[in-house]
C-alpha cells in the first residue's frame, strides 16, 4: 500500500500540474482563475511535504508550520491580487 501511495501522490501531482496549465491557458485571468491556480499550488505543496518529505509522520508542530506558511504566503498574494 505504501509503495502504491507514493505513485498515487505522484500521479495526482502531475494531474494537478496539467489542470493548472489548462486553467492558465484560458484567455481570461479572472480572480477565480488566480485563486484556483494558487489553491492548486498549495495542494501540490502540501502533498510534496506530507508524502515525499514524510512530514505526515512528523510532530504536529511541523505539520502546522507548513500550513501556517501557506496561509501567510498564499493569503498575502490573494489579498494583493484581489
Amino acid at each position: 500500500m505504501r509503495k502504491n501511495l507514493l505513485l498515487i501522490v505522484w500521479l495526482v501531482l502531475i494531474m494537478l500540474t496539467i489542470c493548472t496549465a489548462l486553467v492558465s491557458n484560458s484567455t481570461l485571468v479572472t480572480t477565480v482563475a488566480v485563486t484556483f491556480i494558487l489553491v492548486l499550488a498549495a495542494i501540490k505543496f502540501i502533498l510534496v511535504a506530507n508524502y515525499f518529505m514524510e512530514m505526515k509522520k512528523a510532530h504536529s508542530f511541523w505539520k502546522f508550520s507548513i500550513i501556517f506558511y501557506l496561509i501567510i504566503v498564499m493569503g498575502t498574494l490573494l489579498f494583493i491580487l484581489k
Binding site: S24, V29, I37, L40, K44, F45, L77
Partner: peptide
C-alpha cells in the same frame, strides 16, 4: 527545491 518551484511556477508564469 520542488517546494520552491511549486511557488515560483504559478506566480511567475501564470498569474499576471
Amino acid at each position: 527545491c520542488d517546494l520552491i518551484w511549486l511557488l515560483l511556477f504559478p506566480v511567475i508564469y501564470l498569474l499576471f
